[in-house]
Amino acid sequence: MTLFDLIDGEIATVHSFTGDMELESRLVEMGILPGIRIRRIKTAPMNGPIELKVRDYHVSLRQDDARNILIQQ
């Protein structure tokens, strides 16, 4: 499954990335690597971007980008 499918409030582990290489590079530089645990906090109003907690910080990304992040629950 992908991060897109994760329900708000649930925790998962990053498995790998597909698609956009720029996105992958940006995420890994911010420490969002395969094996790291993330929690999907919420979805923005109007079904907008999603908010995550990873390591010690909160980050948001668009739902289209979330489809490119494969996870394991």
Binding site: D20, E22, L23, R26, L27, M30, P49, E51, Y57, H58, V59, S60, L61, R62, D65
Partner: peptide
């Protein structure tokens, strides 16, 4: 440069 929205929500 493609737009990305990997944006930190700082405390």
């Amino acid at each position: 440069g493609k737009s990305s929205f990997v944006m930190e929500l700082p405390p």
